[in-house]
């Protein structure tokens, strides 16, 4: 089962005035999870590029200036305030035969690392997202897919709600201001 292009609506938030780059791990290009239920069927879910698309959409809405960077990007030339490295720590799901309900549930544990322009880790934030969906409404494959979409949407809501409190990323703006003030102050003769 392939989850294609999970998206989030445009959030109703004020953007954080920062120039931010996101570096995605390779797994974000093609994430797949399989689970063999003991004595029962094997389930698999293919998130494809959904994580990459989700985080790109989310960070574009959250920050005034956002770009995706890779290992070859010239960070000095880009003049970023912060680098974000999201990753997946764990992905789990339960199917109706396990929970004895008619529900599929998906748990995703993401990790958001924030680095400053010097490459030092400013924050290392684990987040747990959850989504569930009923088989009666969607059918088995669609219900698992819907639960995964809801978990990703839950992660996006949590990141919007808690990002600054958990990582103090907004402070990197004042660091930039301080840096630019220092560089523009004439040296004493």
């Amino acid at each position: 089962m392939v989850l294609e292009n999970a998206t989030i609506p445009v959030p109703l938030i004020d953007q954080i005035p920062l120039k931010v780059g996101a570096r995605y791990p390779e797994v974000f290009n093609h994430f797949m999870h399989e689970e063999q239920i003991i004595g029962k069927e094997k389930w698999s879910i293919d998130l494809g590029q959904s994580n990459r698309l989700l985080f790109t959409q989310l960070f574009s809405s959250m920050f005034s200036d956002f770009m995706v960077i890779d290992a070859d990007s010239d960070l000095d030339a880009l003049m970023l305030d912060a680098i974000i490295e999201p990753s997946i720590d764990a992905f789990e799901f339960s199917v109706p035969s396990q929970s004895q309900t008619d529900e599929f549930a998906v748990w995703i544990r993401y990790r958001i690392k924030i680095l400053d322009t010097a490459g030092s880790t400013v924050a290392n934030w684990p987040i747990a997202a959850y989504g569930k969906s009923r088989t009666a409404t969607f059918g088995n494959d669609a219900a698992l897919q819907r639960a995964a979409e809801l978990a990703m949407r839950d992660a996006a809501a949590l990141i919007i709600l808690q990002m600054n409190k958990a990582t103090t990323i907004r402070n990197l703006n004042s660091q930039r201001t301080a840096r630019s003030t220092e560089s523009s102050t004439p040296l004493p003769e």
Binding site: P9, P11, L12, I13, A157
Partner: peptide, 24 residues
């Protein structure tokens, strides 16, 4: 109204409504 009425963020009581309405 994303993300203010998600399962995680929706107000559980009416006393959360004034703060919600004050959001951008």
């Amino acid at each position: 109204l994303f993300p203010w009425f998600e399962p995680r963020t929706a107000p559980a009581e009416t006393k959360g409504l004034p703060a919600l309405m004050a959001r951008p």
